[in-house]
């Protein structure tokens, strides 16, 4: 694999729309469940173990076999009950494809795939492995929400990065577990759900004033 390409793919500065998404954090801040770094830690741990595992597995699966993209996309639909989250995932998938098309040669996989599928396809086009795709997915998920936390709550960025460093081994573990299942049939891939993220996203979508798209 090319470590430099992996770092590019995992970089928060990749112009792929992520900066406008809080990964479900904004509603949990609004309802008072996340107020500080501890609250953020609980949020990120749960998110990593649920959406993180699922995203990492689907990114790895798409990277391992891009011809399964459509089927994997359907699998994510079945794992994403919230229409607001499906929309957010597809918007980020589309944005990621835009960046990916400029960087590597991508096979056609439709206009708005779910974000993990797009990520897996980009990883494959960059010559990366399913394990790379999966770590990029898990890493992107926690860092995206963490940076939204810094912006929304004015948290100390060093405290938040200390938290991210503590979560790194967990991130590695989840990504490895996800990548090990990359070849499973779609119905057997991880399906860990997070009810509160679904509920929060549906509430968030009805707000008149919000800072993040999701």
């Amino acid at each position: 694999m090319s470590l430099a390409s992996l770092l590019l793919l995992a970089d928060g500065r990749l112009p792929s729309g992520g900066h406008a998404h809080s990964g479900g954090l904004e509603p949990q801040i609004a309802n008072g469940r996340v107020r500080n770094v501890d609250g953020l830690a609980g949020f990120l741990r749960g998110k990593l173990a649920t959406t993180g595992l699922v995203s990492a597995a689907f990114a790895a699966a798409a990277c391992a076999d891009v011809t399964r993209s459509a089927e994997l996309d359907g699998g994510l639909d079945a794992r994403t009950p919230s229409p607001a989250l499906r929309k957010a995932s597809r918007a980020q998938g589309r944005a990621l494809l835009r960046a990916g098309r400029a960087m590597w040669s991508l096979p056609p996989i439709g206009r708005e795939p779910h974000q993990p599928v797009a990520l897996g396809v980009l990883a494959a086009a960059a010559g990366l492995t399913p394990a790379d795709a999966s770590i990029a997915a898990a890493h992107g998920l926690v860092t995206g929400s963490a940076s939204a936390g810094v912006r929304l709550l004015g948290l100390d960025p060093y405290a938040v990065h200390a938290l991210l460093a503590r979560l790194a081994p967990e991130c590695d573990r989840i990504a490895a577990a996800a990548a090990a299942r990359a070849g499973d049939p779609v119905d057997d891939l991880p399906a860990a759900g997070a009810p509160l993220l679904d509920i929060g996203a549906e509430h968030h979508a009805t707000w008149e004033v919000r800072l993040f798209a999701s």
């Binding site: 500065r13 990749l14 112009p15 792929s16 729309g17 992520g18 900066h19 406008a20 998404h21 809080s22 918007a91 589309r94 944005a95 835009r98 960046a99 939204a148 912006r151 929304l152 919000r210 800072l211 993040f212 798209a213």
Partner: peptide, 21 residues
């Protein structure tokens, strides 16, 4: 309308994807 996640300048300069969409 495009949402900009607290960073209006990012959406028009560094990561223009949502605007292009």
């Amino acid at each position: 309308a495009v949402e900009t996640g607290c960073c209006p300048h990012t959406a028009i300069r560094d990561d223009i994807s949502a605007n292009l969409d």
